[in-house]
Design a protein around this nucleic acid. Structure first.
Length: 293
DNA sequence: AAGCTGGCCAACCGCGAACGG
DNA sequence: CCCGTTCGCGGTTGGCCAGCT
């Protein structure tokens, strides 16, 4: 089992492929397709096993392969997908056009893994290596601390406040960790999402509570909306495509969910606009990981 | 200049799943 | 259903190369 029967045959070459071999394989597959891999070496005139030919084609000769270094966007996507899919490299690769599972696996093992460790994140679990016990309850913001009124930051009487764009933005320290820079959603009423606890121990003090920076509310909470999408989110209205929340009401509030014991519980938190009669939420992640799963 | 070390990456290995007679 | 073969995947290895001592 396992090893192909052809591999036991003698005179089969192993190791690096020569340009001549590549040419033979490329010509054969271009003209005839690969068909049954075990017959490819014979038909192409190669002293290789079919398995080796298949690997060479998939990882190197395929015309749709993208060459060159991975972009930060690709790396972020890999981290995101790995968090959702684990070491299912072929599934991850299928979401990165032109990249092979082998290539992604190598990148993960040689580079990304290291970067995550340097940030104190366990690459297997995507959680802090020190885990959350270092983040004692007394250090966590209380519910009242988390309640942030828009009026504290913007004048409610200001006409700009009525339809001001707000969005949650992660601290820049994490900008190359997650695939989304900002939470994408379109809701003029409110939404519920789940907080990501994996970065709690990494939160810089200046982000221990929300800050308004210009019109941007910065929060240490790294939201993973894709994980917490409601199952019936298909019924949501179309997303406007922006990184912003349009606030239709003059007053707004950011507070923890009453059902959660504190800000960083997995239970979640919510945006809400007081006196709003509607509770529906519309969330649009960059990548619907639930769907992928 | 030579030897050492670590990173990168192509390719191999082993296994389970799928297929087909 | 069984069994041999093939496919596809993930883990691992080993060679090459650049940087360092």
């Amino acid at each position: 089992m396992g090893r192909h029967s052809c591999c036991y045959k003698q005179k089969l070459r192993k190791g690096l492929w020569s340009p001549e071999e590549d040419e033979k394989l490329l010509t054969h597959i271009t003209n005839h397709g690969h068909g049954c891999w075990s017959s490819v070496p014979k038909l192409a005139g190669l002293q290789r096993c079919g398995k080796s030919c298949r690997l060479r084609w998939i990882n190197y000769l395929r015309p749709d392969l993208k060459r060159g270094a991975f972009s930060p966007e690709e790396e972020n996507l890999i981290v995101e997908l790995h968090a959702a899919l684990g070491n299912r490299w072929s599934q991850i690769a299928s979401r990165l056009p032109g990249r092979t599972d082998n290539e992604i696996k190598n990148l993960w093992n040689s580079s990304i893994k290291k970067k995550l460790k340097q940030r104190g994140i366990d690459p297997n679990t995507h959680k802090p290596i020190s885990e959350l016990e270092s983040f004692s309850d007394k250090d966590k913001p209380t519910t009242s601390n988390n309640k942030i009124s828009g009026n504290d930051h913007k004048s409610p009487s200001s006409s700009s406040a009525t339809n001001q764009d707000f969005f949650i933005e992660r601290p820049s320290e994490f900008s190359d960790y997650f695939g989304f820079q900002k939470l994408n959603f379109n809701s003029n009423l409110g939404l519920s999402v789940t907080t990501d606890t994996s970065l709690c121990s990494m939160i810089p003090p200046q982000f221990s509570s929300g800050n308004m920076v210009g019109s941007v509310f910065q929060t240490p909470v790294c939201v993973k909306p894709s994980i917490s999408l409601p199952p019936d989110n298909n019924s949501s209205s179309p997303v406007s495509g922006g990184d912003h929340v349009k606030l239709a009401a003059p007053n707004w509030e950011f507070q923890t969910n009453n059902n959660t014991s504190n800000f960083f519980d997995n239970g979640g938190f919510s945006w809400s606009i007081p006196n709003s009669s509607t509770s529906s939420a519309q969330v649009k992640p960059n990548h619907n990981l639930e769907e992928i799963k």
